[in-house]
């Protein structure tokens, strides 16, 4: 070897030894998790801050709703309690609608830029040539983003659940918990739906490689998926049926359902046990006569009591998890296609 280079190596040898990492105290992200946190921390902090604020606000308001409903049910409400309860029903619709939009928000603003941002700016290559594998990069990004998304949906969903409970028990007819803005925004379903939003966004970002188009395509895709989900949701409900017989099918004869239950379907009941739609004979000159001629003997009401809500949440969440895994297969394909 040339003496010149050997000397040069010796001269600066000790200084070149890798510096020992400083001791760390407490929890600190390391490796790929550190990179993902550092790169997306603004997004994650906004999510975290929004979640904390919204959750606290819902819980705070929920305390008053609980008290007001208790007062109304106790038969000794102040005028303020009545107003609080009335306002709470309309507020519940709005909060639920906002929370049901979370998957769209997360899909477009967290999922879509997750990889499209790096592919657009070239930093996907920067990370791709470090010693860690691309699979680890993709998996860590998805995992950390999923953690914050699930946390947001879970916490806000739980708070909304707390806010909604007395209102449902007081009068479920004003707080339909089978609709999108209530069912999709609480419980495990809210968590799985937000994860689907995230994964669809990430997948579209991997395929389209550019941020803005990815966000648009994500919103469109999620809109389509949401439409399909609207059609499928009630398939997971277990319903109770209550009927009247003996020719009692006048408007006043409708069977009572529990006040914490939601009426799902209303039909006429024939003597042979078959059902016919409530619009039967609606245009007939003599309605009751027409109905009697048709064999109608009473009402049949399908309803879902609030006690079935949990079961429906879990079965629906299980089915949605299946869909999530299917999307995950597409994500894996997209990552493989785009990143090598």
């Amino acid at each position: 070897m040339s003496a010149t280079t050997q000397e040069a190596r010796r001269g600066s040898g000790p200084a070149r030894a890798p510096r020992a990492a400083a001791p760390r105290r407490g929890f600190a992200p390391r490796g790929m998790v550190w990179l993902v946190w550092r790169q997306h921390r603004a997004t994650f902090l906004v999510m975290l801050g929004g979640t904390v604020l919204a959750t606290a606000a819902l819980l705070y308001k929920g305390v008053y709703v609980h008290e007001a409903v208790a007062a109304v049910d106790g038969g000794d409400p102040t005028p303020g309690d009545d107003a609080t309860v009335a306002d709470a029903y309309s507020a519940l619709q709005a909060y639920g609608a906002a929370l049901a939009g979370l998957p769209f928000l997360v899909g477009a603003f967290v999922g879509a830029p997750l990889f499209a941002g790096d592919l657009e700016s070239g930093t996907a290559k920067l990370v791709g040539v470090q010693s860690r594998s691309r699979t680890e990069w993709v998996a860590t990004k998805l995992a950390v983003a999923a953690l914050f998304s699930a946390l947001a949906a879970g916490a806000m969903g739980a708070a909304l659940h707390y806010y909604r409970a007395p209102l449902v028990e007081h009068d479920a007819s004003q707080a339909d918990f089978t609709l999108s803005n209530s069912f999709d925004s609480t419980g495990p379903v809210a968590v799985v739906l937000v994860l689907i939003g995230l994964l669809v966004g990430a997948t579209v970002g991997l395929l389209f490689r550019r941020m803005l188009p990815s966000m648009v395509v994500t919103l469109v895709s999620l809109y389509v998926l949401n439409f399909a989900w609207e059609l499928a949701r009630m398939a997971f409900a277990r319903l109770e049926t209550v009927t009247t017989g003996g020719g009692r099918f006048g408007d006043d004869d409708r069977p009572r359902i529990p006040r914490d239950a939601v009426e799902i379907d209303l039909s006429y009941l024939r003597s042979d046990g078959s059902l016919t739609g409530w619009s039967t004979c609606v245009n007939a000159e003599n309605g009751p006569a027409c109905l009697r001629e048709d064999g109608v003997v009473g009402w049949a009401v399908d309803y879902m009591p609030y006690s079935h809500f949990g079961a429906m949440q879990w079965t629906a969440a299980a089915a949605l998890t299946g869909a999530l895994l299917l999307i995950g297969v597409v994500t894996a394909y997209a990552a493989r296609r785009t990143l090598r």
Binding site: M1, S2, A3, T4, Q6, E7, R10
Partner: peptide
């Protein structure tokens, strides 16, 4: 002259 470890 190359002197090992010292220089040229």
């Amino acid at each position: 002259e190359l002197r090992q470890g010292i220089g040229t």
